[in-house]
Design a binder for these strands. Sequence first.
DNA 1: TATTTAATGCGACTTTATTGCATTAATATG
DNA 2: CATATTAATGCAATAAAGTCGCATTAAATA
Lengths: 126, 126
Amino acid sequence: MKRRKTQSQEEILEILKDSNSALNHDMLQAKLTTKIDRATIYRVLNRFSDDGLVHKVIGDDGKQYFAFCLNCDKEKKQHSHNHFHFKCLKCGKVECLKNEIDVSLPKGYTTEAFNGLISGYCSNCS
Amino acid sequence: MKRRKTQSQEEILEILKDSNSALNHDMLQAKLTTKIDRATIYRVLNRFSDDGLVHKVIGDDGKQYFAFCLNCDKEKKQHSHNHFHFKCLKCGKVECLKNEIDVSLPKGYTTEAFNGLISGYCSNCS
DNA sequence: TATTTAATGCGACTTTATTGCATTAATATG
DNA sequence: CATATTAATGCAATAAAGTCGCATTAAATA
Ligand SMILES: [Mn+2]
Ligand SMILES: [Mn+2]
Ligand SMILES: [Zn+2]
Ligand SMILES: [Zn+2]
């Protein structure tokens, strides 16, 4: 299954690149100039996530947020995102925090996915 | 609004106490001997969470998991749970990890809630 | 025992996300 | 360029998780 370069994907990726924070479906749709179907948006986003192009973060609100990968070592066998995301409760912005976190698991435990989210107020809103 | 001691709450709290892992609505309902309405279960759980009796964790699956508070200093002004939870992708168990995490936020940022979840395989399942 | 109102049950509803299927369009091939 | 192949899309239906309004029940208190 080779990937194809489509207009929808291009536009969505551009939006994610230009955004300095993670976006959920709603926020992304609001930024679209073209009309793209909801199902397509989700499919595109999850495809990006599967391909390691974006992070997928689950918010306190249970919604899926997507952020373009920056400073992620995609050459590594395991593309990892062991950093927290911060969600402002007032302005809604979701951003990546710089520090990579090292969590020590009990013996015999293995990691498949990391999801770290802190909610609070950003410097503009507190 | 003073809290009342009801049978539903008692039973749900017992189940959470006896469980060594976080439970979502489904898992909890399966353990009930009495039949309690879905809305009530959610209301009870969120009440517990508001009162600092249990943690509420959002999984990768977007579902709400609840775990009885252990080793949480409830005397502190801010009842904090800055620890990760681990969810086994095979057996489904969600458990609290011991280490408290210290995340450094950018200047001017304040924390209201912490949600850390690692998915993977536990020692029994890997 | 009577009064007050927190908690519950039920059903309707909302929100978020997924899936099946027919159609479209990106890529490859001659 | 014309044609074949199938990934990607649009649409509608569906699923799943959680919330809300409101009438009823039952804890607490007097
Ligand atoms: Mn990345
Ligand atoms: Mn606690
Ligand atoms: Zn803000
Ligand atoms: Zn397991």
